[in-house]
């Protein structure tokens, strides 16, 4: 059985009927959520700031009042057991949840001064500023060149073929893929290996020069060598981009991120400098997770 589900049953709610056994009561006390997120979820130079975010799938609430900031040029890792809402939260940040009809987002989410859920906001423009890399490499069944050129083309970033060539080359270089593919730019992107495909997807994302890059478990489908390459890449990209990454690997969070947020069943339990979270976790849920007792 999924750990997350097990814990869901013990989630303290004000309207919980008093039918729970003594043992469960005891368990509940030890896993009580903090009133407020522990640690320091806010920063001064916030690129994105979210306050009291609730997300609902139909009647089911997936995210409960999450507030945090993502600082400029910072790498923020979102960790937590499966089903804790970290991917859902990430997808709110460039409104990818719009594609799910029953999904509803409440609270305030800002990219600098821009309200993300302002009805007047153009989602197309937002997604050009906040790019996303997905869990499974999903290159288009087009050539490598066309994959990278896709974004610049739809946003009209290049006027001439020459400009487009340049964007494609720099993006592939930044993604560390240029040397491997420069001789076969016009062969299909789906013919690359898994790790190369994921770097192609990163190149595709940064080709539209986003300010923030969201990564949803970008290495979960990759082998350790490809993972190491992507992690190196994340470190390099953080110089020019703000990055939020969801990961299941605690080592990865520790290696690549500046700050780490621990989610549990839709709540942000603890957020702090990565080092602090992994060496001195304050909440017992965080500690239990990072020491591998569940999750």
């Amino acid at each position: 059985m999924d750990t997350a589900e097990k814990f869901d049953d013990k989630t303290p709610r004000s309207d919980t009927p008093a039918s729970q056994s003594e043992g469960e009561q005891a368990m509940e006390n030890s896993t009580r959520y903090p009133e407020q997120t522990i640690g320091s979820p806010y920063v001064d130079n916030a690129k994105m700031s979210m306050r009291d975010v609730d997300v609902f799938y139909g009647d089911k609430q997936a995210i409960h009042g999450v507030s945090l900031d993502i600082g400029k040029n910072e790498v923020v890792a979102l960790i937590g057991p499966s089903g804790c809402g970290k991917s859902t939260f990430l997808r709110c940040l460039n409104r990818m949840n719009d594609t799910i009809d029953i999904c509803q987002v409440k609270g305030s989410l800002h990219l600098e001064d821009q309200d993300l859920y302002d009805p007047k906001l153009d989602v197309v423009e937002l997604r050009a500023r906040v790019g996303m890399v997905f869990q499974k490499p999903n290159p288009f069944p087009k050539s490598i060149y066309d994959n990278v050129a896709y974004g610049p083309r739809i946003h009209g970033l290049a006027n001439k073929k020459y400009d487009l060539d340049e964007i494609v080359e720099t993006s592939l270089q930044k993604a560390g893929l240029w040397n491997e593919v420069k001789d076969r730019l016009h062969s299909p992107g789906t013919g690359l290996s898994g790790g190369q495909q994921q770097r192609l997807c990163i190149a595709r994302t940064i080709a539209v020069s986003p300010e923030v890059v969201l990564m949803d478990e970008p290495c979960s489908a990759l082998d350790p060598i490809a993972t190491a390459k992507i992690e190196e890449l994340i470190a390099e990209l953080s110089e020019s981009y703000t990055i939020a990454i969801v990961t299941h690997s605690m080592q990865q969070a520790a290696r690549v991120s500046n700050r780490t947020a621990y989610f549990h069943l839709g709540r942000l339990v603890e957020m702090n400098d990565t080092e602090t979270v992994f060496t001195k976790p304050e909440h017992d849920l965080t500690e239990a997770y990072i020491t591998g007792r569940f999750g």
Partner: peptide
């Protein structure tokens, strides 16, 4: 696959652009 739609939408393509350039081919 939904992943292709997500990829296109995530790059800021509109729905009709996604249909024309990704789904249709």
């Amino acid at each position: 696959p939904q992943a292709l739609r997500d990829a296109s939408l995530g790059l800021g393509a509109t729905r009709s652009e996604t249909i024309k350039k990704v789904i249709f081919p």
